[in-house]
Design a protein around this nucleic acid. Sequence first.
DNA 1: CCATAATCTAAGCAATTGCTTAGCTATTAT
DNA 2: ATAATAGCTAAGCAATTGCTTAGATTATGG
Lengths: 203, 203
Amino acid sequence: MLFQSNCLVLSRSLEAMARKKQYNEQEVIDKAMALFWRNGYEATSVRMLEKEMGINQFSIYASFGSKHGVFLESINTYKKRIKRITDKLQASQNGKEGIKQYFYDFLKFARENGVNKGCLVTNTVNEIKKESDPVLMEELSKFADGIKQLFLTNLLQDQNKNPQLAKKQANYLMNCILGLSVASKVFEQSELDDIIEITFMNI
Amino acid sequence: MLFQSNCLVLSRSLEAMARKKQYNEQEVIDKAMALFWRNGYEATSVRMLEKEMGINQFSIYASFGSKHGVFLESINTYKKRIKRITDKLQASQNGKEGIKQYFYDFLKFARENGVNKGCLVTNTVNEIKKESDPVLMEELSKFADGIKQLFLTNLLQDQNKNPQLAKKQANYLMNCILGLSVASKVFEQSELDDIIEITFMNI
DNA sequence: CCATAATCTAAGCAATTGCTTAGCTATTAT
DNA sequence: ATAATAGCTAAGCAATTGCTTAGATTATGG
């Protein structure tokens, strides 16, 4: 599994060593994530992963155990990649303006060659049934809660903000960015800009 | 195909007649729609449709041509079913309050046995790739535009409303209800209520 | 140089996919 | 009753799914 086989290698340094992996696990997961992001989980076959990751099915199963395992690592990598903009939001001291910037940052983050792919986490919540994979679902919920919490702390930076209201507004903002994840796939950029402006008009 | 074979029957009344269909096409499509709504397009197999619709695969293909054909008819039926609440919005004279009511009506419409299934059209936009079925995608876009237009005309009922602003607000409201379609699958009802209240607070 | 062992290629597995078809059944006009 | 015809059942089709495995390849320690 990812980054564990290397440790295994170290712990066995006394025995006879064998062939080295001809690929970097993080690199091939990056490519897998891009494919899942574009296509969704079900619509991405192991044959497609083979091509995109540039390695044989044997290697995929040796490194990640299953298609599901590749997907879990893809989600982890997605979180790593989006951390760049959530960290920026965490560091922000501009109240709701910082959150607004996060909305624009997210749209940029989710765009590739002019195509909006939405949020991989949101796409996944939309695709899988809650009861089919409750562990993954719980993980995705926690990710969303983390972002909602960031919204809340940023909202509370604004003066005279009622904490009760701020909590509701955090839910409201979460709903708006969920909408943007979907809307960005269909709407024009100018419409998305309008939406963001109205969204932050009265909070 | 749906409601065409009956016409065929009429036009051939002089020749020998044969066995009658043992199912009602609208009834079995209602069941197919429910399944697609719960599971999505790809995750619904023809074998599952067989069971849910209560008819053999032969009958499915005789009546609707393909799995894709069943889905197209399911979308049509979805539009018929949701018409009950869009018609209510069309008849409303309460400005933004009528739209707010539509939000609540939609959440009720999308709930089945306590489970929120979202909007079938939104789910589909989220699942299929734009280029894989541009005809269907165009149809779904038109449906969404129709609702956006209803938002706009209702907004313009409010006094002293700037038409330019109203257009942006219609996009904003469309984004919020797209969000609700996703959020309703994960959020508690009280949170959804909070979201709707805040959504209409600043327009 | 050779034994060991991890990684590679490529063929193959059962199960499932959307769809078709052969043969039986039911309904009608004559 | 009989012939004609449409609908039904159920078996079967090729293609694709996620996953496995046999055998060749490559790297290391002794």
